[in-house]
Design a protein around this nucleic acid. Structure first.
Length: 490
RNA sequence: CGGGGUGUAGCGUAGCCCGGUAUCGCGCCUGCUUUGGGAGCAGGAGGUCGUCAGUUCGAAUCUGGCCACCCCGACCA
């Protein structure tokens, strides 16, 4: 396990800071915790985005865009929602600057104070539901299935690169339904989309579950989540899907005429995943040599590096390399041929390793003679020399193999790190080892809070379709009907 | 907001106790040799020592104020 690297993502600055993201945007406290995503890192986000977007559309959703700035009053309409977000909102109070009279630079023009302050969205429920009021009159307008790709800002007291930045990119789905059952079904369906995405594309196993009341989204009746386990033994919430009941419909007065002609409030869901997924990706697979990307999300799946002496030999090798490149590309695989003359092969090898490129091909004079190439895989770092014929098929299989190997490795790691605890002593001991702990809980928020205070562990989720069994709460010994999953989390 | 720490070249640092105009590594530039795992040699460029004030003939170094950032906690996707 890559100890040094997974504990705190931002520590691996050597490769991470230079190539994926740079955090120190400016020497200014106002932007602390914001992130600059460099082109290579952004390419990974684009892959995530493209795949999720496809899955949303396959489940009947369409994209739309709502404003960044939200009138302050909107936020106060749903009581729980305000309480959840009020403490971390950036507020726009003025609309103009002017030159300072003493020539010291620009200042905020006090004349330009806004009558009503605007907040920068921490999430868009309020402005979207305010808009939906005008869009929904009849059951014929339902369901309304909309997704938004956007940035949001949450002024967190403490930030962590990728996992909790002040500004982050995400998608938020907001749907409206005619019945409670349909809305619940929708939130469960989207949870499934997230789980499928995590497992199939990110090669990251997740546990589907529901949050306890304490951990629920502000304003939701039920919060579903997918929880993943990072290499350092900490849990990470990878995505959430909320059943909002009629809370927002009531707060924003969104009513529709049902088939019987009666007015009723609509039922809502919202669901989202963010650039946190990139943190999850890094912390699930990477090692001390850098990123390890699952082929299904790697912007570059195969890199070809020529080994040569002199211009003449390079031309000869390039001819063959480009032939192999286009052959592999016929399988829909993305291939980069790196014939830069400014770096040596050894340097390039290392560079693509920390960029996480799944497969590297080296081709030199020796290969030209023998009709071979050297193929190296990032996940196991194994190298082998292959004949050039059928190379596209061989690479295609190799990529599939890497994808499933990464998933298997992650799932094995997780199985090794889920334990049952039946006493408080055992619970505490297991916690220090990291991982999920399956234990009985009496179902009260007070007990949950107490356990958090004592151990910093939280209930990550109550798994869906959880086995019912009688037991005693790990802390209070009160009767319990099921085990829940505890962990220390990011 | 509480507790701790740090500010010296693009990055990472030495020097500070004991005052005399700044050290080393990476990176960058030039040239030659190299190229199957992060090249070698030679030469070179780059610094208001966070900031303001004080002490002093003289301050990166001593004193005081301010600013910024990092870590730990409270909060959280």
């Amino acid at each position: 396990m890559a100890k040094d690297f997974t504990t705190r993502v931002e520590d691996y600055s050597q490769w991470y800071n230079e190539l994926v993201v740079k955090a120190d945007l400016a020497d200014h406290s106002a932007v602390r915790g914001c992130m600059v995503i460099k082109p290579y890192g952004y390419a990974i986000w684009e892959k995530i985005q493209a795949q999720l977007d496809k899955m949303f559309k396959e489940t009947g959703h369409v994209n739309a865009y709502f404003p960044l700035l939200i009138p302050k009053s909107y936020l106060s309409k749903e009581a729980d929602h305000v309480e959840g977000f009020a403490k971390e909102c950036a507020v726009v109070t003025h609309y103009r600057l002017k030159n300072a009279e003493d020539g010291s630079g620009v200042i905020v023009d006090p004349e330009a104070k806004l009558e009503e302050e605007l907040i920068i969205r921490p999430t868009s429920e309020t402005i979207i539901w305010n808009t939906y009021r005008g869009w929904i009159q009849s059951y014929r307008d339902l369901p309304l299935l909309i997704n938004q790709w956007a940035n949001v800002v949450r002024w967190e007291m403490r930030t962590r690169l990728f996992l909790r930045t002040a500004e982050f990119l995400w998608q938020e789905g907001h749907t409206a339904h005619a019945s409670k059952e349909e809305a619940i079904e929708e939130s469960e369906k989207m949870l499934d989309v997230y789980a499928t995405f995590a497992e199939t594309f990110m090669a990251m196993p997740v546990i589907k579950g529901v949050k306890t009341k304490n951990e629920r989204f502000a304003g939701a009746l039920e919060t579903y989540c997918v929880e993943a386990l990072m290499q350092d033994g900490k849990a990470l919430q990878a995505g959430t899907s909320h059943f909002l009941g009629q809370n927002f419909a009531k707060a924003f007065d969104v009513k529709f005429a049902n088939k019987e002609g009666k007015q009723d409030y609509v039922w809502a869901t919202s669901w989202g995943v963010s650039t946190r997924l990139m943190g999850a990706l890094i912390m699930t697979h990477s090692d001390d040599e850098g990123l390890v990307l699952p082929p299904n999300l790697a912007p570059i799946q195969v890199v070809i590096i020529p080994i040569y002496k002199g211009q003449e030999q390079l031309e000869e090798i390039s001819k063959q390399a480009l032939k192999i490149k286009s052959e592999i590309e016929t399988k829909g695989i993305s291939v980069k041929y790196d014939d830069r003359d400014t770096q040596k092969p050894g340097f390039k090898f290392a560079e693509y390793e920390f960029k996480g490129v799944p497969v590297r091909i080296a081709i030199g004079p020796r290969d030209l003679e023998n009709g071979t190439i050297e193929v190296a895989r990032r996940d196991t770092k194994e190298k082998e020399t292959l004949q050039q014929q059928d190379i596209a098929t061989k690479i295609e299989h190799l990529l599939k193999n890497i994808q499933s190997n990464l998933y298997q490795k992650a799932i094995d790691f997780r199985s090794e790190n889920i334990h049952k605890a039946d006493s408080w002593e055992e619970f505490e001991k297991l916690l220090d080892q990291g991982g999920f702990i399956s234990a009985h809980w009496d179902g009260t928020p007070e007990t949950e809070e107490k356990i958090k205070e004592l151990t910093k562990a939280t209930i990550r989720c109550i798994p869906l379709n959880n086995k019912q069994e009688t037991g005693k709460c790990i802390l209070t010994n009160n009767p319990s009907t099921q085990r829940v999953l505890f962990a220390r989390a990011y």
